[in-house]
């Protein structure tokens, strides 16, 4: 290949220097937080006064992420099995099918999505009651 100087091709990339004058695209994270969009599929919440313990959520979840368990919490009187769902976040893929099939719409996905823990057992997540 013959060598020839590509002048515009050499000079035009220098336009990138203009970016030094611009505001950065990133945010200063712990000080400024990014707003999560409404309807983001984050952690589960389960409104216990509504949950009827029907286990539809367990049936539809193909990742076997949901256990129906007994706790000492206050349930809905109509909760026919006296069980509520607990989710294994090691298996869940946040597909939100369980919330789609929940008859009283008690199970929902929340905007919150940050979870930090040092114990693997904390992956077994009890949905917040709200």
């Amino acid at each position: 290949m013959k060598w020839s100087i590509d002048i515009s091709g050499t000079l035009s990339p220098l336009g990138i220097l203009a970016a030094m004058m611009q505001k950065p695209n990133t945010i200063a994270y712990p000080a400024v937080k990014k707003e999560t969009a409404v309807g983001y599929r984050g952690f589960h919440t389960n409104l216990l006064v509504d949950c009827i313990g029907c286990a539809n959520c367990q049936d539809v979840c193909m990742n076997d992420a949901i256990d129906m368990i007994k706790t000492d919490k206050e349930y809905n009187v109509k909760n026919s099995s006296q069980c509520i769902p607990r989710i294994d976040y090691g298996r869940c893929c946040w597909c939100s099918l369980c919330t789609d099939v929940c008859p009283p719409d008690s199970l929902k996905l929340d905007e919150e999505y940050l979870g930090v823990t040092q114990y693997a057992s904390d992956f077994l997540y009890m949905p917040k009651d709200k």
């Binding site: 286990a55 256990d67 007994k70 099995s81 006296q82 069980c83 992956f123 077994l124």
Partner: peptide, 20 residues
């Protein structure tokens, strides 16, 4: 194997029957 600590799972159908 499954994650440890998942043995609390109840068979809901049976549980419903029992409660009924």
């Amino acid at each position: 194997s499954f994650r440890e600590g998942r043995d609390g799972n109840m068979d809901v159908k049976k549980e419903m029957k029992r409660l009924r």
